[in-house]
Design a protein around this nucleic acid. Structure first.
Length: 111
DNA sequence: GCGGTGACGGTCG
DNA sequence: CCGACCGCCACCG
């Protein structure tokens, strides 16, 4: 998992990113995790940005369920190319409910 | 090896 | 509820 992206996209073939990806990969279908939770589970309790950065580096078409990672409070972070729309669509497709434009973490949050 | 940077987040006004 | 301000960390040039 991982690929180069245009510009200043980070690219690492082991360690930190892989740990982030490993965590994201085990988010069950129909459930979501916040960037902070993902980072924490990967061993970086105070580096939510790291999770964001790692996901940002994902190549298009990755098999990783990146759409299950949302911002604090269940918000969808604006993504390039309005990718947030795709994310919402995918989540809805797996039965994730939204409340006032945000994922209902009470029902779909990680535990 | 230094410095800028980025799909974040909690706090404060 | 919204915007601004740090803090945090690995990655790239």
């Amino acid at each position: 998992v991982n690929a180069r992206t245009p510009g200043a996209l980070p690219l690492r073939s082991s360690t930190a990113y892989d740990r982030i990806y490993a965590v994201v990969r085990r988010i069950p279908r129909g459930r979501v995790a916040t960037y902070g939770e993902v980072a924490a589970k990967a061993g970086f309790p105070h580096a939510p940005r790291l999770a964001g950065y790692a996901l940002y580096a994902l190549p298009p078409g990755t098999s990783l369920p990146w759409h299950r990672v949302v911002g604090a409070g269940g918000r969808l972070s604006p993504r390039a190319g309005g990718g947030e729309v795709v994310q919402r669509r995918r989540l809805l497709a797996e039965g994730v409910a939204f409340r006032a434009g945000r994922v209902d973490l009470r029902r779909h949050g990680l535990r």
